[in-house]
Design a protein around this nucleic acid. Structure first.
Lengths: 353, 353
DNA sequence: TTGTAAGCGTTATCAA
DNA sequence: TTGATAACGCTTACAA
């Protein structure tokens, strides 16, 4: 009788959900006791008999705790926001798999958002996650070199963090945010040296978009090393394109059309390398006989491609787990930075020459 | 002064979020007015001057509406639950991409869960989504032929729907739930006929797990047609395995070891077919010269594999969009059922013979 | 161990 | 057009 004074019209919640009050009343206990029995939170109390009765009643009535009400009352949620560019891309889906695994272990629910490289959407998602009071946000994917957009994102993330949320990214360091940093530049250089060691001299690069920082780092590392080795990459052997399979395909066609005499093509992502491989095949260019090919990431699909592709392996799934750990780490004074180093894996697409 | 009577100790919400009350107070208007100004819901009111003032104040204070409070007050959420077996699998990630696209358009946020084929987890996720009061739940992935587990899931979904949620699945019909149904059996039969037409006679099947209904349908359709064509598939040419790349790999090795003289191998999913392809290659068996190979799904990665794989195409991404539409469809008296028909795509892995 | 009641931040109803 | 104020369903001091 207490909670529903003078039979006021209660907005008949669509579907008429059973509330904790209903359970308490039916079990003949107070709301507080019911809450404790069902939750048994920090300070466990509730005598065994009552607890059993409450639990049985809840079960019988089909009680389902309202997570929103709990979130309000507790002042915190069990939600983790995951923002990627495109979940259909094997690079992102592998990382996402790691994130969901780790989130599962931490009993967190994952909210997934795809930006499709749209900075505006990304910002929008951050705001939405902020509104959800998500406990942490994980941003996967290269920052674009767009000062204005980055600044706005940065501000949104700052606001989010000021409210007690934590943020972690897989990408370049955004000031003030935990980051899992792939050492793209160094790995790119390592790759160039390894290939040089195999006898390659006339490198070509499918660089991805010019304003993409990850692509840029890989490109830069590779070119720098090439230069140091005395085999600089001339401009005509650089082709930009979207960071997708089709982008790689188109870029490779372009490159082959230029007839630059390259003996090796480095595509800055495996997904692009796959497109490039097909482009080569379709144009009658044999990999690796006519031209060698290397990628970056070591995505799962590489396993079943011929020739097997040389690449730089980064542990995608595990990175998902690591970045989740980073996102859930207790707030330090400064942002955390964890490094991941890529490992060159030489396969059949780049035989000694 | 109203909301905070006699300076009671307010649980200093971690991070001290700005509430609508704060905005209202700072703007010198009532809570109700502030709410209306910021939301402009159904009955828009609020004079222009006040609205501007409120909006400006909200902006200035960095107000972020609490989605949980809104959910409580409104009695509904903007969440869509998506349950898949494994987001890293290109089949699921392609569908997930379609779902997130459609969800975006409907202004819904997507909560992602991976079951890894564990019925218990699946059930758990349904309950969690129920607790979140998710507006709809999408289940992607074959049901296993486990009566007990299915019954429990069914009950959980019934309870969810009784509370006003809607459910849609990509799989076999679970009684009482909207379903996007792939005509696996027919497509399997179509494939068998097409291959027979190309001259193949000694079929072998990598069937996937025996208790997986989707795999079973594809297998059954294929075998039935083969039988009708007078070329039944003997038991020794059937190999079961998990529905994964590694499962396909292992199954193919097993099959090759048996030396059954098969002229064509049908793997019930492309992912398995990819593993099988590599297994063949490693054992020195040339596809398609020594044995032909076909899969099912037409996942994106197939584009860049050699030889190009014959398969049954189903529009994965679009299926994601369709099942979302189904999940958001207004409740009918009976559950909806939409059919998707697969299309046989013959490629280089099964040349005429 | 159990109960009472004050929040949590909105929306929506009813008056003004 | 605006303002009070009662829900929404739960957790958690504080009392008993």
């Amino acid at each position: 009788m207490t909670s529903d004074r003078n039979g006021t019209r209660r907005r008949q919640a669509a579907g008429g959900a059973v509330t904790l009050s209903d359970v308490a009343r039916a079990a003949g206990v107070s709301l507080a006791t019911a809450s404790r029995a069902i939750n048994g939170s920090a300070n466990r109390a509730v005598g065994n008999e009552l607890r059993q009765r409450v639990l049985a009643t809840a079960e019988r009535l089909g009680y389902s705790p309202n997570a929103h009400a709990q979130a309000m009352a507790r002042g915190q949620t069990a939600t983790l926001g995951l923002i990627v560019h495109d979940i259909a891309d094997p690079y992102f889906s592998a990382i996402a798999a790691g994130v969901t695994e780790a989130a599962d272990e931490a009993e967190l629910i994952v909210t997934l958002a795809n930006t499709h490289h749209d900075a505006e959407r990304e910002l929008q998602y951050v705001r939405t996650l902020q509104n959800q009071r998500a406990r942490a946000i994980i941003l996967v994917g290269a920052r674009q070199n767009d000062g204005e957009a980055n600044l706005r994102l940065r501000r949104a993330l700052d606001a989010y963090q000021a409210r007690g949320g934590t943020v972690a990214t897989v990408s370049q360091a955004i000031l003030g945010v935990n980051v899992l940093r792939v050492d793209n530049e160094r790995a790119g250089a390592d790759l160039a040296r390894a290939l040089h060691g195999l006898g390659y001299r006339r490198f070509a690069l499918l660089t991805g978009p010019t304003d993409n920082l990850t692509a840029d780092e890989r490109t830069r590392g590779f070119r720098r090393a090439a230069e140091e080795l005395g085999v600089p990459v001339p401009g005509e052997r650089l082709v930009a394109s979207p960071l997708t399979r089709d982008g790689g395909y188109a870029a490779m066609r372009e490159l082959l059309g230029r007839d630059t005499g390259a003996d090796l093509v480095f595509a800055v992502t495996d997904v692009m390398a796959l497109g490039a491989l097909t482009a080569a095949r379709e144009s009658g260019t044999v990999v690796p006989d006519d031209v060698a090919l290397a990628g970056f990431d070591d995505i799962a699909t590489l396993q079943d491609v011929t020739p097997a592709l040389t690449t730089v392996r980064i542990p995608l799934r595990d990175m998902g787990r690591q970045v989740t750990r980073l996102a859930l780490a207790p707030a330090e004074e400064g942002p955390l930075e964890v490094h991941v180093t890529g490992e060159v894996v030489v396969r059949a697409s780049t035989p000694p020459r």
